[in-house]
Structures are given as structure tokens and as C-alpha cells.
């Protein structure tokens, strides 16, 4: 029996009077790679933002490792859970190494000088994403895939057991999508980090994840292992998409062929 990294209980989310998610219960396993899937506008990103406490809950609770998140101090939360939003802002002229250093913010006092321990965490983060050689380059000079890896290095420097990513592969071409998802998979395997991302590509999500959450227009459709979640009936319910589901000839995970 695996423990939960994050649990939602009777979760209600929305903007003003418009409810996007209502009465959602779910359980995200610790130490696993989870992908949140669903059609545009079904509340995937909203759900992810709520799990990082970026937006207020309209109803229900979110538990982080069994503790109610609403009562945690901001720094405590930031030491246990990191989020990479979809389009963070690039400070003009910033170097990759300086960007990654900012990930240490929750671990540093405001007047505490930079020290070797922080530097080591940042070096490891840069090495993990393969950007050690580009550390002294301006972020703006990097390619799309390298840039995304730099942002991931920032949240890695935050050194949290739980990592949330909002559509980390959007705007990237297929090889770079594979590269980012492979990187997240490896981080999970090497460090035991719980990785939770919002993704669009069903086949890649099935291939790189242990656990899937499929949302539809009327809330949760299915949750569980890829084989159990990516089925023809679930796709019809979530996306109104008629499709055949075949085993992926490379990985054996479910593969969607739209009809």
C-alpha cells in the first residue's frame, strides 16, 4: 500500500460563481509520476494551482502528506512542494546559474549569505538537467528545450519531495517533449521525487507515468494506472472522442488511435 503525497477531499474550485471542479475526491500516490489529463477547460491547471495553494479553495480540503495544506506557513509549504507554472517571467539578462539560485529562496534567511551548501544543491540541479556547461549563459540565449530544463533546475534547487509542473512540454517539439518527460521520470527514479504534471499528449502520458488522473467536463472520469484509465469508454466520456486503444508497440502502454 503506497502512501499519498496529495489528497483532495470534497474539493470545489472555480472563479467567482463559475465552478470548474465540484466535489472532487482524489489521491495522488507518493514517490510516483502522476499526469493529470483532460480536455481544454476542464480544470486541469486550476486543480494543479489549487494543489500548490496558488488559488483559494471554494470547498473541501487538500492534504499534503496527510496535513491540511491551508494551515501551513508559506515557507514550510515551499520546502515541501514546488510548482513550475506554465509561463514564468524571464528577468531580463538573467544567467542560468542565477535563475537556479532563486530556487533556494525558501531555504534562506533574507540576510543569510550564500554558502557552499546552497551552491552544491544548485550545481546538482544543473547537473540533473544537463545544463552544467550552460550555467553562465543568459537564459534568453537558450533553446526552448534547454530553457524548460533551466526552469526545472530552479524547482529542483527548491529540493522538495513533491514537484508540480503545469504543461511542462507545451510549445516543445516531440524530441524535446520526450527529453523533458524522460528527465522527470529519471528524477523520480533517482530521488524518489513525487512528480505531478498536467499533460496534453495521452500516449506520452501513458508511457511516462505510473498514475493518471483523467478529468472530463463533469469532473473526475477515472484515476489509476494507465491501463485502467486510458480506455475507449473513458475517452468518450472525457473528450467525447471516439477512439481505439491499442498497446503501444514500444512500451506496451495504452496508445490512442482516434477514429
Amino acid at each position: 500500500m503506497t502512501s499519498s503525497a496529495l489528497q483532495a477531499q470534497g474539493l470545489g474550485l472555480g472563479y467567482g460563481a463559475r465552478r470548474v471542479i465540484d466535489g472532487l475526491d482524489m489521491d495522488l500516490p507518493a514517490g510516483k509520476v502522476t499526469a493529470i489529463l483532460g480536455p481544454n477547460g476542464c480544470g486541469k491547471s486550476t486543480l494543479l494551482h489549487a494543489m500548490a495553494r496558488l488559488i483559494p479553495l471554494q470547498a473541501g480540503h487538500i492534504l499534503l502528506e496527510g496535513q491540511d495544506m491551508a494551515r501551513m506557513a508559506p515557507k514550510t509549504l515551499a520546502r515541501r512542494l514546488a510548482i513550475l507554472p506554465q509561463a514564468p517571467l524571464v528577468p531580463p539578462g538573467i544567467l542560468v546559474a542565477d535563475l537556479v539560485r532563486r530556487g533556494r529562496a525558501p531555504w534562506r534567511g533574507l540576510l543569510e549569505p550564500w554558502n557552499a551548501a546552497h551552491a552544491q544543491v544548485c550545481d546538482q540541479a544543473l547537473a540533473a538537467v544537463g545544463l552544467t556547461d550552460l550555467a553562465q549563459e543568459p537564459l534568453e540565449s537558450l533553446s526552448g528545450g534547454q530553457r524548460q530544463r533551466a526552469w526545472i533546475a530552479l524547482v529542483l534547487a527548491q529540493a522538495t519531495p513533491v514537484l508540480l509542473l503545469d504543461e511542462p512540454t507545451t510549445w516543445l517539439d516531440l524530441p524535446h517533449q520526450m527529453e523533458i518527460l524522460g528527465l522527470l521520470r529519471r528524477l523520480n527514479r533517482d530521488n524518489g521525487t513525487t512528480v505531478i504534471s498536467v499533460l496534453h499528449d495521452l500516449n506520452l502520458a501513458a508511457r511516462f507515468s505510473d498514475h493518471l488522473i483523467l478529468l472530463g467536463p463533469r469532473g473526475l472520469v477515472a484515476a489509476g494506472a494507465p491501463d485502467a484509465v486510458i480506455t475507449e469508454t473513458h475517452l468518450l466520456e472525457a473528450f467525447a472522442l471516439a477512439a481505439r486503444v491499442l498497446p503501444d508497440p514500444v512500451s506496451g502502454t495504452p496508445m490512442v488511435c482516434p477514429l
Binding site: 496558488l54 508559506p74 515551499a78 507554472p85 514564468p88 517571467l89 528577468p91 532563486r102 529562496a105 527548491q158
Partner: peptide
């Protein structure tokens, strides 16, 4: 300066 979402994720108000 990294944007509100990331800043809050880093424990800043």
C-alpha cells in the same frame, strides 16, 4: 520578478 505563481510557490507573499 519570476511571476506571481512561481514566487508564491517559492514561499513569497
Amino acid at each position: 520578478a519570476l511571476g506571481r505563481g512561481l514566487a508564491r510557490g517559492l514561499g513569497t507573499s
